[in-house]
Amino acid sequence: MCETLKESLFDARETPCPLNQEVMKMAENKVDEIKLKYCPNCGESLLKPNSLLNEYWISQDTAYFCWCGECSWRGEIIEIIRVTAPELATS
């Protein structure tokens, strides 16, 4: 769990104001941390401040938008929960 979230949780428990309760609620829903760490192209850390590793959600999928500050590789990686195939043509 990232430091910010830990701090937010701590604050929320100390002070039960509506804003902090909201932070706690968000934290409870948070079951993961940013799982991706390295550039798939050059292997450099994507967590460095000069890179961008932006987690977002496409329906049920967790997606990672990546831009590597070292090699400038840009792409998206989607965590696979269930492997599906496209519907086969019927004609």
């Binding site: 910010t4 961008l52 932006n54 987690e55 977002y56 500050g69």
Partner: peptide
């Protein structure tokens, strides 16, 4: 804004594009 607790969806792709552009231009 504390972006470590945000929850972006597909309609927020423009925001991500802009963040990346800032980083790219910095490089």
């Amino acid at each position: 804004a504390d972006r470590s607790i945000e929850r972006l969806g597909t309609s927020d792709r423009g925001i991500i594009m802009y963040r990346q552009m800032l980083k790219r231009e910095l490089k």
